[in-house]
């Protein structure tokens, strides 16, 4: 494992911790899209079907369990916890995410590495992860101003994607047989979705101002 990938995994973990911290400390999930969180839970459940069939490393297995449990816990909190549920911006979070699930699944049936149960679900999870942030970005755009922790949450998620691209470039040059075009192309699409957010994030950071997304 190279430093870029480790840093990518760590920033991914930090983004989840920031989100949990926000929900726990403020007992509020305002500014957070339940739809994006549901999509992430589906992403991890579909991708880590290999948890019991393929052992890669202790690190790998532990991270998989952490990602599954934390994503399910966040969805549970936003749906069931009384105070948290009340703060949910339901009327702003109207993106039809079921279409994304359907489209990604059909796409996975068409484009995959092997036509097996696990491989189709793996490809599905890669495609779905690429677009899962869309409901969150739409919600932020609609609400206009973004609170600190929510901004940091999205920032760390974006950083994780950017670091994974550096990891692939590194692996491409250092590994003999490195071909994973499904993950790489989806990863590029996913990172591109953050470009707009990053632009305004750095602008607010440079001007030391609150993060505002123009409508």
């Amino acid at each position: 494992m190279n430093a870029f990938r480790l840093a990518g995994d760590i920033t991914h973990l930090i983004s989840i911790l920031v989100l949990l911290l926000k929900i726990y400390a403020t007992k509020s999930c305002s500014g957070i899209s339940l739809k994006t969180q549901e999509l992430y839970a589906v992403v991890f459940l579909a991708r880590y079907l290999d948890l019991f069939t393929d052992f890669i490393s202790v690190y790998n297995s532990v991270m998989k369990v952490v990602f599954i449990l934390s994503s399910v816990a966040i969805v549970w909190c936003m749906r069931r916890h009384r105070a948290v549920k009340r703060s949910y911006d339901k009327e702003l979070d109207t993106f039809r995410h079921y279409y994304l699930v359907g489209a990604c699944f059909v796409f996975a049936l068409l484009v995959h590495e092997k036509f097996t149960f696990q491989e189709v679900f793996w490809a599905f999870s890669i495609y779905l992860e690429a677009v899962a942030i869309i409901p969150q970005l739409v919600l932020l755009q609609r609400s206009g101003n973004v609170d600190n922790l929510t901004g940091q949450y999205v920032f760390f998620l974006g950083a994780y994607r950017a670091l994974y691209i550096l990891n692939w470039i590194y692996r491409y040059f250092t590994e003999a047989k490195f071909s994973r075009w499904i993950a790489c192309i989806s990863g590029l699409v996913q990172t591109a979705l953050y470009a707009d957010f990053f632009y305004y994030y750095f602008l607010s950071w440079k001007n030391n101002a609150k993060l505002n997304l123009p409508a």
Binding site: D54, N60, M63
Partner: peptide
Amino acid sequence: KEQPHAHDEL
């Protein structure tokens, strides 16, 4: 030699 696992990333 064993092939490296295709899905070794998270």
